[in-house]
Amino acid sequence: MSRTTPVSRVVGACLRDARERRMILPDEAAAVLGIGPLALLALEEGRRRVSPRALELLSRLYQYGDGDTRALEQLLAERPDFNGIARDAAPGHARRLAACTSNASRIRWRSTTVLPAPLQTREYARALGEPSASRPGAPRPVTATTAFVLDARVIQRGGQTPRLMADQADHLLHLLEDGTDIRVVPESHGFLQPPGHLVEITLPAGRVLAQPGPSWVDYCATDRLSAAIDAALSATDPDSSRDILRRAAASHRAHTLSPTGPDTDPAERAAHVR
C-alpha cells in the first residue's frame, strides 16, 4: 500500500463544508487569508496543505468549536503508520467523514458488518448507538454518484429484533426503488478482507479510502483495497439485490408475526442487530 496519506484532502473537505454551512463566499474566506480564490480552492480540494495559521483564521471565521479545530490540527499532524493509514479518533469523526462524502463526486461504500449510516432507519441507528452525522446549515443538492455494496448477512441477521429489521429492509427497498444504488452480494460469494466498512471517496484532488470504526475513522490512499469493492460489485446486480432484500423483509416480517419470535426491548437490540 502507498505510504502517502490524503489527510490534506480530508481537512480541505471539512473546511469547505464549514464555510458552506456558514454560507460564506470563497472570496471572503480568501481575503481573510490574504490569498486569491483559486488558492483557497486549492486548500479546500487538498492540493495545497493547510498551515496552522490558515486553520486558526478559518476556524475563527467559520465559528468552529475548539474541539473541532483541535481535531483538524491533530489530523494535520498525524503521521501515517507503516500501512499509510492516518487515524481520526477525535470526537466528531463521523461529522468529518460526512463532510468528505458531501464533497465527493463519487462514493463507493462496501459493508460486511452493519448497514452504513446513510441507509439506516432511526430505530436501527438507535439500536447500534451510532452518533448522528447529519449536516446542519444550508442544504446541498445530492450530486455524488453513490453505490452501497452490502454482504447479504448484513440484512439477514436480526436475531430477536425482527420488527426492527423488517422495517429496515422495507426502507432499503424504498430507497432502491427511488434510485439509490444498493447492491447485495450473496453469501456464496464471500468478501475480500478486511471486514467492516470500506468507503472510497472521490474528491476533486483524488480518491480517499476511509475505514470507519466504532470510535474512529482511518484514512489512507486508495490502491489495492479498492479491489474489494470492485470484486463485490462484479458479483451482483440490481435485480438480484432487489430479490434478496424482498426475501429478507418477508423473513423478518414472518418472525415478527410468529408467537415464538417476539421483539426484545430496545436495551437488548444492539446485541442482536450486529
Rank of each mutant, 00 (worst) to 15 (best):
D170C: 06
P195M: 10
T146W: 02
G84H: 13
A98E: 06
R106C: 03
A169T: 15
D243S: 11
I35R: 12
D178S: 14
P195E: 06
T121G: 01
L75D: 06
A227E: 05
T69D: 00
V208W: 07
S132F: 05
A152G: 03
G129S: 11
R53M: 07
A133M: 10
A221D: 11
L57Y: 04
A99Y: 08
T145I: 15
Q193T: 15
T145H: 14
A270V: 12
Q156A: 03
S251C: 03
G84D: 05
T5D: 01
W109G: 00
R53E: 12
R157W: 09
H252D: 03
T146I: 10
R224F: 04
L164C: 11
R87C: 06
A31W: 02
H189T: 14
T112I: 14
A13Q: 05
L55H: 13
T236I: 12
C220E: 07
D230E: 11
R135D: 01
A30L: 11
P262Y: 01
H255N: 02
E45F: 07
D27N: 13
H174N: 09
D151A: 10
A205G: 13
L119A: 04
R3S: 02
T264V: 13
Y62M: 04
G46W: 06
L173Y: 05
S8L: 07
S240L: 03
G12F: 03
L173D: 01
R3Y: 03
R21F: 04
D265F: 02
G261I: 12
A231K: 13
P204G: 07
L76F: 05
I24N: 02
E56V: 12
W109P: 00
T113E: 02
L33M: 12
C100K: 11
A210T: 15
H174T: 15
S8I: 10
A270N: 09
G190L: 05
V50D: 00
E130P: 00
H255P: 00
S132L: 08
Q63I: 08
L40V: 15
G196F: 04
G12R: 01
P212D: 06
V142A: 01
H255Y: 01
M1I: 15
S8T: 15
R9A: 01
S240H: 11
A86Y: 09
A94E: 05
V149K: 00
L203C: 13
L233A: 02
S134K: 15
Q74S: 06
R242K: 10
G213V: 12
N83V: 09
Y124K: 03
C100G: 04
R79I: 14
P131W: 11
W216Q: 11
L75S: 07
R47I: 03
A228H: 01
